[in-house]
Write a protein that binds this DNA or RNA. Structure first.
Ligand SMILES: [Mn+2]
Ligand SMILES: [Mn+2]
Ligand SMILES: [Zn+2]
Ligand SMILES: [Zn+2]
Lengths: 155, 155
DNA sequence: CGCGTAAACAACAACGGTTGCGAACAAGCA
DNA sequence: TGCTTGTTCGCAACCGTTGTTGTTTACGCG
């Protein structure tokens, strides 16, 4: 993630104005190596600026994504993860807590033309699902008792 | 996808009852090689059985997923895609229309222990995003005029 | 073959994440 | 300072999915 100053320059270059809200979001993003959700960015920024709205956070994250300063990832954790690292890389996802870890690998996976079916595609996105260390430490039942049946229980 | 009869046996083996709704869903799934959403399964089944509810479709798709007869995929297209092919494989996704195409590849991508950060993970899921043949035929604007600006326009 | 009971169904409400909207507001610039 | 235009914020709407509940149905047993 670029510095708040660099982002400010980039925003101005697009004819966008600089505001305290945007600065606060830039700062929060700059000091995280995480894959925060809009909600968690909102939580971070709200500490400094309690009056900011979640709507503004979404707006700014989307602007940054459009400008390519941020990557929006859908890793199946229920909400969009915003990735401050724009370089090509892959992800490990904890299916229990949603933690995301970066994996920098230079894999070349070619799509066999015979199977490509005429698609024109970009770089592969590789995701491994599993358990993070803290979740695999805990025995299998973090929150539920042990239903041992369908998650959708009928009457 | 196994045949409706096999699925019926599998359901009964779990103590689940057989109903016309479930049979209709089994039939619809058996004759698709697609990656349908719950809505599109609902559309298919509704042709034969107009009284079926979307809720029942979700319920049955979830049951099949729990039993491992179906795989639920989140490919970032906005809704869950249900994959009748349970064998290990990967996907090409059209970012324009959401079409999904299977890719059978035997890639071995090892996670370097140094970068694994203690995660225990399973098989990698590889996704290529791009354009399907019919979407890349059309010039860039399938439905919108040409906004060429942020999707979130302010007043 | 008919009952009783547990399971499944349809309809509708609620939910979580995200975006549309419009009025009030504040950057930037002369 | 005043003006113009982009920005913020609160709220409603939206979409995919799941919870709830009263009614209907499947199916084991007599
Ligand atoms: Mn990342
Ligand atoms: Mn598939
Ligand atoms: Zn975890
Ligand atoms: Zn397409």
């Amino acid at each position: 993630m670029r510095s708040p100053d660099e982002l400010t320059t980039a925003f101005r270059a697009q004819g966008l104005k600089m505001t305290p809200q945007r600065q606060a979001i830039f700062r929060a993003l700059h000091q995280t190596t995480d894959h925060p959700t809009a909600e968690s960015v909102y939580a971070m920024v709200s500490a400094d600026m309690p009056s900011i709205s979640l709507r503004t956070v979404y707006q700014t994250l989307n602007d940054l994504t459009t400008m390519g300063e941020l990557v929006a990832l859908d890793l199946g954790t229920g909400s969009t993860r915003f990735d401050p690292t724009a370089d090509d890389h892959h992800h490990l996802v904890c299916v229990a807590c949603g933690a995301v870890h970066d994996l920098f690998l230079d894999v070349q996976v070619a799509v066999p033309a015979a199977q490509a079916a005429g698609f024109s595609v970009g770089r592969p996105e590789i995701t491994w699902r599993g358990m993070c260390p803290s979740c695999s430490d805990r025995p299998p039942a973090p929150q539920t008792e042990q239903p041992a049946q369908r998650e959708e229980t009928n009457a």
